[in-house]
């Protein structure tokens, strides 16, 4: 297994920055997510998390700091969170931190909906937009 590093950009589409680090088990998704093919982008990330769980069996920290994601991304996020929940139920150690703009009430609601959907404990971490 190798790290996944994707530099985010805002060009024809909005690509989030991704940093999945094998050594620390810290997985970060940051930025905006509006992609040409959402599943093409997220499938390798899901596979990575599954492989990490299966092969490494170590604690995993998932950090989301997305200021915008479209609804097809929202489904991929749900899939990842469900994988994490299954890992936790199987005895794995999982931490999910979700950073959001303190003024973005819609985002806060979205995160609450994910908590309800997955049963995962998600730490809501508000930040002040510069």
């Amino acid at each position: 297994m190798e790290n996944i590093i994707i530099e985010g950009s805002r060009d024809t589409y909005f690509i989030p920055s991704v940093n999945f680090e094998l050594h620390t088990g810290i997985c970060e998704i940051v930025g905006e997510s509006f992609l040409e093919d959402t599943i093409d982008f997220y499938k390798p990330l899901m596979n990575w998390v599954e492989d990490y769980i299966e092969q490494e069996k170590r604690p995993l920290a998932f950090i989301i700091k997305l200021t915008y994601f479209n609804t097809s991304t929202s489904r991929c996020i749900l899939d990842i969170l469900n994988i994490l929940k299954d890992y936790e139920e199987a005895g794995g150690e999982v931490v999910v931190n979700w950073h959001f703009d303190e003024n973005d009430i819609d985002m806060e609601e979205d995160i609450e909906d994910y908590i309800q959907d997955t049963g995962l404990e998600i730490n809501l971490i508000p930040f002040q937009k510069k």
Binding site: D37, I39, T71, S74, R75, D106, D113, D117
Partner: peptide
């Protein structure tokens, strides 16, 4: 919000659409 969650848990359409765009727009 519950309706959105229900639609989101259904299998994705072939285009990868969340099938929930309009619900999200209304929310």
């Amino acid at each position: 919000r519950e309706y959105k969650r229900k639609l989101r848990s259904l299998p994705a359409s072939a285009k990868g659409g969340g099938n929930i765009g309009l619900v999200q727009v209304a929310l």
